[in-house]
Write a protein that binds this DNA or RNA. Structure first.
Lengths: 104, 104
DNA sequence: TGTACATATGAACACATCTTCATAAATTTG
DNA sequence: CAAATTTATGAAGATGTGTTCATATGTACA
C-alpha cells in the first residue's frame, strides 16, 4: 500500500520551524500574555503581572524568552517597558486554536 | 488606561488545555508523524519509521506519548500496530499552521 | 518449535525548562 | 541626593524531556 508523503511539502526544516514556534507558545503563562497582547497593542510588565496574576520576575522571564525567540517586541519609555506582539502569525495561531478546536 | 482582559473568555483552564495540546505537538518528529497521519488514515510503526527516517524505538516512544496524551488512536492487527489521528482538532491546528503563518 | 519480524518498554544520561529568590540596574520624584 | 518604582538578571534546585541502548513481548511462518 502506498504511503502518501508530505503532500504540502512539509520538509524537515519547516517541521523544525513550526515546532520551534509552538514550543515558544506552549505554556499557559505565555499563552496568557499573548492573548492579552492580542487585544492590547502594548502593555507594561506591571500591566501584565496585575492582569494575569503572575509574579514580576516570572513574567519578566517569560517575556524575555518570547522576545529572544522572536515573537515579541519591546519599547522602553521612562521606567516602563512596553511589550507587544511582533508578528501577526502568533496571533493567528492563537485565534485558530481558539476558534477551530482544542475541545479535548 | 484601560486594559482589555480576555475578550473571548480565555480563562486559566482553557490556557492550560491549549498549552497541553501545543506541548504535545511541539516537536519536529511528532509534527512529522501527525502530518503523515493527516494524509494517511492509518499507518504502522514501520511505515512511519521508514517514511520520516526515525529509529524504531524513538518513533515508538513518540507515538506512545501522543497516544497517552490523547491525540492518537492505535489498533493492533497481527504483528502490526496501526496508528491514526484521534481528533480532527490536531489536524486543524497543523493545517492552520501550514496555511496562515509561521513564516518567521 | 525455532527463527524472523514488529513493536514496546525501561533504564540511564544529557539536557532543557520552570520557578523562586535575592538582588541589581535604571529611572522618576520628592 | 534619597526613596520609591519598574524591570531585569542570575543562581539554584526541582522537574520534565529527548534520545539511545539493550532487551522483552508478541506474532507469523517455515
Amino acid at each position: 500500500m502506498e504511503i502518501k508523503v508530505v503532500p504540502h511539502g512539509i520538509d524537515a526544516e519547516k517541521l523544525e520551524r513550526i515546532a520551534f514556534i509552538l514550543k515558544t507558545v506552549a505554556h499557559p503563562v505565555r499563552l496568557g500574555i499573548i492573548s492579552l497582547l492580542e487585544s492590547n497593542k502594548e502593555l507594561t510588565v506591571t500591566d501584565i503581572c496585575e492582569t494575569i496574576q503572575t509574579e514580576q520576575s516570572l513574567t519578566s522571564h517569560h517575556l524575555n524568552t518570547m522576545k529572544l525567540k522572536g515573537i515579541l517586541n519591546s519599547r522602553k519609555k521612562g521606567r516602563n517597558v512596553f511589550y507587544s506582539l511582533k508578528e501577526k502569525d502568533v496571533t493567528q495561531i492563537i485565534r485558530c486554536l481558539d476558534n477551530c478546536g482544542c475541545n479535548m
